[in-house]
Design a protein around this nucleic acid. Structure first.
Lengths: 221, 221
DNA sequence: CAAACATTCAATGTTGTGATTGAATGAACT
DNA sequence: AGTTCATTCAATCACAACATTGAATGTTTG
C-alpha cells in the first residue's frame, strides 16, 4: 500500500464515521444517549420514530463504534461508546451555530430570549464552586440525575419546581442546568425562579458536555 | 412552529452541515484548503479527481458555508470560511482515531513508526518558546509558509533540508511542523535531522490546528 | 413448553448522492 | 470582436441511504 493510498484510506474511514453522524434522527438519538443508557422502546417514544427505524439507526451507530447495545433482561439498553463523541458533536454544533445562520437564529429565538442573561461558563462555575458561592440545580428527570450529576447539585425535576421552590436559598446565586444546549428545561427553570425573585442563571451547555470535558461529577449511591 | 419542531429543525440543520463533511473527497479538499487559498486547478491536481468533480464538491462546501470562492483574475481561489471549521474537523479526527481502530492503526503504521518520539504538545511548545529554548522549523512549501507560520519559525522546504541543514543550531532542540496530523513532511524532516545528530521532535498536529486554536502566528510581509 | 414481549432482520419503494460527459459562462489577452 | 482559458452548469447513470412493512429471533414469564 502506497503512502498516498494510505492517506486516502484515512479520509475514507473519517468520511464513513462522519456519515454515521450525518442524519438528523441519529443526531437526536445520540443526544438522548448522551443523557445515559436507554432502551429502544424509550428512544422510540422520545423521538416519535417507528420502532424498527430506531433499531435500524441504532445498528448504524453501533457499526460506527458510536453506541453499544447491551441486553438487560427483556430490553436492550443502548449507551454511548466511550470516547470523545460528545466533544466531536460539540465541535459540529459550534460550527453549525457559527456558519449556518438559521441554527443560531432558532436557538436565539426559542431559547436565549427566554433567558436574556448570558449562561455561566464551565470555567467560571468551577471558580464559583471553590468559593461555595453558588447552588447548583439539576432539573432533569430523576433517573438521569441518579445516573450522574454535578457535585453537590440539588435535584428538583422541573415539573416539581413550583412546589419545591422552598428548598432553594434566596441568598445565593442559583445555577440551573439540564441536558445540553438545546434542552429547554433549564430555561424554564430560570423563568420560574426569576419570577419568584431568585438570582438564577443557566449553565452553559449541560451535563453531558460537562462530563465529556472530564470535569467532576458524582452519582447517586 | 412548536418548540418540538424547532428542536427537530435544529437537528436537520446540523445533519445537513454534517452531510457536507461526510465525504472523503470533500474532507481531503478541506484539508488542502486549511493550508491556504487554492485555485480549482491546483486542487484538481492535488486530489487527482476530475476538474468538474472538484468544482462540484466545492459548490457543496460553499453551500454549506464551509468554503468561499473568490475570483482572482482568471482563476477562482477557494478558501475556508472563517469559523471553527478546523476545530470541528479535529474533533471528528480524534473521534475516528479513538473509535475506528483502523484509523489509529494506519497512522501508527505509516507515520508514528517513522518517528518513535512523542510529538510536543501545543501547550508545551508555548512554554518552551517563552524560555527561548527551542528552534521552530517549518518544512512546508514556501508559499504556505509565506501565508502564515509560527512566530520566529525558520523556513526550510523539506526538499532542501539536506542542503540547508547548516542553518539549524545543534545546541537547541528543534521542533518541526507542517500541515497537520497526516502530513508526512515533518516526519521526514525529523528523520533527516535525527540522522545527522540533531535533537529534534515533531509538533503535535500542524499549522492549521495551531492557528485554529487562536495561538500566535505571523505572516511574511 | 407456550405466550408475551422487545428487538432485529429482510424485502421493498422512494429519494438522494457522486462521478462523468459535454455544453455554457465569463474574464483576460490579442 | 474573437480566442483562450478556468470554471460552472445541466443531464445522466449507477449506487447508497431512508422509512415502512411484516416476518423472524431470542428472552422472560406463566
Amino acid at each position: 500500500m502506497s503512502m498516498a493510498s494510505a492517506k486516502h484510506l484515512l479520509f475514507e474511514h473519517l468520511a464513513e464515521l462522519t456519515k454515521a453522524l450525518a442524519n438528523s434522527n441519529r443526531l437526536e438519538l445520540l443526544e438522548l444517549l448522551a443523557q445515559g443508557a436507554q432502551s429502544v422502546e424509550v428512544l422510540t417514544q422520545r423521538t416519535g420514530l417507528s420502532f424498527a427505524n430506531v433499531s435500524q439507526h441504532l445498528q448504524t451507530l453501533k457499526k460506527a463504534g458510536l453506541a453499544i447495545g447491551e441486553r438487560d433482561g427483556k430490553n436492550v439498553r443502548y449507551r454511548l461508546q466511550d470516547g470523545p463523541i460528545v466533544a466531536a458533536l460539540t465541535g459540529l454544533r459550534r460550527l453549525a451555530e457559527h456558519n449556518v445562520a438559521a441554527v443560531g437564529d432558532v436557538r436565539r429565538r426559542y431559547l436565549d430570549d427566554l433567558d436574556g442573561l448570558d449562561p455561566i461558563s464551565h470555567d467560571d462555575l468551577i471558580e464559583r464552586m471553590k468559593s461555595d458561592s453558588v447552588v447548583l440545580l439539576d432539573v432533569r428527570p430523576g433517573d438521569e440525575f441518579a445516573s450522574g450529576h454535578l457535585p453537590r447539585a440539588v435535584h428538583i425535576d422541573v415539573a416539581d419546581l413550583e412546589d419545591q421552590v422552598a428548598r432553594l436559598p434566596k441568598d445565593r446565586e442559583i445555577v440551573a442546568y439540564c441536558r445540553g444546549p438545546y434542552c429547554v428545561m433549564s430555561y424554564k427553570a430560570v423563568q420560574i425562579l426569576r419570577a419568584k425573585g431568585y438570582l438564577v442563571r443557566r449553565l452553559e451547555d449541560g451535563f453531558p458536555e460537562w462530563k465529556a470535558e472530564g470535569r467532576p461529577v458524582e452519582s447517586a449511591t
